[in-house]
Design a protein around this nucleic acid. Structure first.
Lengths: 297, 297
DNA sequence: ATCGCCTAATAGGCGAT
DNA sequence: ATCGCCTAATAGGCGAT
């Protein structure tokens, strides 16, 4: 079955890729639209999200004897790994709330982001002027605490889409290598997600990548609090341009070569799997709506 | 905030724990009910699930140059890691479909299973004879292929609930150690999930643990197929008894000491974090409805 | 059938500069 | 601010017995 629809997909993919390279404005509009949708969902439900998130701290007596171990170089010892708190309190809601505005399919893929749903709606059909009614929304949830709260996110190669060349039937898609280009260092970044998928039924599915970054406080650091707790402080939302926008047209990477900069992996990591960082500051420069924040009162 | 509601939770927890130890039949009924619900959702949507699952194989041209690496001892080299295919094609649907029958909250926790949702409904209120209208459904999705398709699942300590003693206000909950007891070996298993949670608003939330095990075929192994592909073959559903049922009343573990048997970790693993295996055969003996299968046509 | 050897992929805290 | 050092937790393929 790996090749059952290959020929159909090959021609349809290249047709779609040409279409969206020519009409790249539609991709931008699609990203703008979904960025707004997701942002508004979170904003509308922020009270509930905050309550669910903060319950993790209130449930301390139930996990205090089995906390996740701290990790990394030299953990100070006053922090609890909080990854899953953000993933669940945000992720579950996204699955449900998106289904209010879109038809959803949970198409399988061996790798990709935390949450990935194929969305269909008339609005997408409108935006693409009838070319497709679907897109693949990739959402990654990147939690951080007060000591790691910089204006960027760390992305793995399975979380960023690339130029997506598919030159000959058997070759399959390949992305041009991106340079994670920093002030003091740089390294190649082998993003692995295509800019567009074509499903076995012919549906054309451009990829949209959104990062949600819940940031938590550590109450133990505040001078007037004796008790602990890691409540939600704010949520940043960032929309990373589709690989065609990055590498083809308008080729954002040529104007903003430092959009991606070196990640967190050390030199023992397989270079093809090294992560990069995405600058939120530069995303905002590309288009103001690519970066937004929701403060939690 | 770690201790804001501790006293309330302490008393309410022990009251609830006593209640469900005395009325353990209600816990069993609750598990039976949810087991049926989840099983029926999957059965009703199996065509869609299968389509979404199998699309991962059809999308091969899009990931063939960036496949997840095989892992473990001596990979043969003909298999693709398929973990995320099952997680997403099943998981996304569960989030949405459960919301048709239940009110859902995505309460945060630093650790636990893949999917965990606090469900509320009148039906739960009925089953518990008015004691609570909520439960915490923990669902773990455990994919395997044809070479690892045994009648069990491997569970980490964060995926099984225990006896849940909370003896003094400050101590927090602790589970009695379970013995993962096999034919040739055995080891302690330090399950870390309490049998019941009490939320900050006083809601009593007993835990229900369900395992979904999608099993895939490897077409490359079939003698009349030259192409590859890893389509869905069947889904097993297993319901693991709540820790109170296991360790207190009716104390299933005393009658079925081999329900949990040694897991997959090696001796370098922190003993407190070692996984165990759960026997599906024994689950079926405990109550027939604790193990069911859905064949994919 | 039992059970454990073995490694990829994810993630983000925090130190060194 | 930059960037990479560093490790927990999850997962299941498959070999040895």
């Amino acid at each position: 079955m790996f090749n059952t629809f290959r020929e159909l997909q090959y021609y349809s993919y290249n047709r779609a890729r040409n279409y969206f390279r020519d009409n790249y404005i539609q991709l931008v509009k699609l990203e703008n639209f979904l960025s707004k949708q997701v942002f508004q969902l979170i904003q509308n439900y922020i009270i509930q999200i905050k309550e669910d998130y903060n319950e993790a701290s209130y449930l301390y007596p139930f996990w205090q004897n089995y906390p996740p171990e701290e990790r990394g170089r030299q953990p100070i010892g006053d922090q609890y790994p909080w990854i899953e708190v953000g993933e669940h309190s945000l992720g579950g809601k996204l699955y449900r709330l998106l289904s209010l505005s879109f038809n959803i399919r949970d198409i399988g893929l061996p790798a990709g982001s935390d949450i990935r749903v194929v969305l269909s709606s008339d609005k997408i059909y409108q935006i693409t002027e009838g070319f497709t009614n679907s897109c693949w929304l990739f959402v990654d949830i990147k939690s951080v605490g007060p000591r790691d709260d910089w204006n960027h996110a760390v992305m793995s190669h399975n979380q960023i889409s690339g130029s997506g060349r598919w030159d000959s039937l058997l070759s399959g898609i390949t992305n041009d290598v991106i340079i994670a280009c920093g002030k003091r260092s740089s390294h190649p970044f082998y993003c692995s997600i295509p800019p567009i998928y074509v499903l076995s039924d012919g549906t054309v599915v451009p990829v949209v990548i959104i990062i949600l970054k819940p940031v938590y406080d550590m109450l133990s650091l505040e001078f007037d609090v004796s008790d602990g707790g890691q409540p939600l402080s704010r949520i940043s939302c960032a929309t990373v341009p589709n690989g065609l926008l990055l590498c083809e047209r308008p080729n954002y990477l040529s104007e903003f070569p430092e959009l991606f900069f070196p990640g967190k992996d050390d030199k023992t990591k397989n270079p093809r799997k090294k992560r990069c960082r995405v600058s939120f500051e530069i995303l905002k420069q590309i288009e103001y709506w690519r970066f937004r924040e929701i403060l939690v009162s």
